[in-house]
Write a protein that binds this DNA or RNA. Structure first.
Lengths: 109, 109
DNA sequence: TCTATAGTTCATATATATTGAACTACAGTA
DNA sequence: TACTGTAGTTCAATATATATGAACTATAGA
């Protein structure tokens, strides 16, 4: 688990959105459900690739339940190693999404 | 200036170290001096490429002074757009460097 | 065992990174 | 106006990484 690895994992818009969705759930999500919530169609091989990058960076862990693989963010480990980092990134992303939303609606200041 | 772009720019160890060095100076550094402080030998074309990524992400601006190009971090703009983000990343990086230093000296807990 | 579902791995086409060589921009000197 | 040197950029070639269809693995249910 390195900063460069974490930042790299989060530097892809899809993965950043995936992590945010995972953070919003208490017990994690499977790949299909995660992709579904992003409202972005994607081949499952690509989805699997993104999950792998997130896993290898240390951002998430996955656990098998039947045929599904449930993934969750390793919040505690991240927080103890790099306090505040993930939250700052998610806050910044939320802010960006909010700003983009306002611009899209032609209500920007 | 997007989160994904900023995280991507910072996800390379060289660029992360470059930004930290730039943050430590009051008035910026030229390319050669930045590279010199990193103590990493690198062709100038590679160095120029890294500067370009940082510039395009919005992290730095460069200004010509004679033959030199002085670069500095766009601290104010970053702070107003994504408060706390850059500092969190740099803090995490400093922490990682400190930990690596202790491990290297065989004094890890 | 057969079928269906959820993901992974593999092969390959596309895209991005690295780097030597050539080029641009400026300064100093004559 | 050259000519020389220094600082960076751009270009072209190669090396590495990403995206994705096709094939494969793992589990569940009938």
């Amino acid at each position: 688990m390195t900063i460069a690895g974490i930042l790299y994992a989060l530097s892809d818009p899809i993965r950043l959105a995936m992590v945010r969705e995972l953070l919003r759930t208490a017990h994690g999500l499977n790949c299909t459900e995660t992709a579904c919530r992003l409202k972005v169609a994607m081949p499952k091989s690509t989805l699997s690739h993104h999950h792998r990058i997130l896993r290898e960076s240390g951002l998430i862990v996955s656990e098998r339940h039947g045929t599904e693989l449930t993934s969750r963010v390793r919040t505690e480990e991240l927080e103890s190693r790099f306090p505040g980092l993930l939250q700052s990134v998610i806050d910044a992303y939320d802010q960006e999404c909010a700003t983009a939303g306002r611009r899209g609606a032609r209500r920007a200041s």
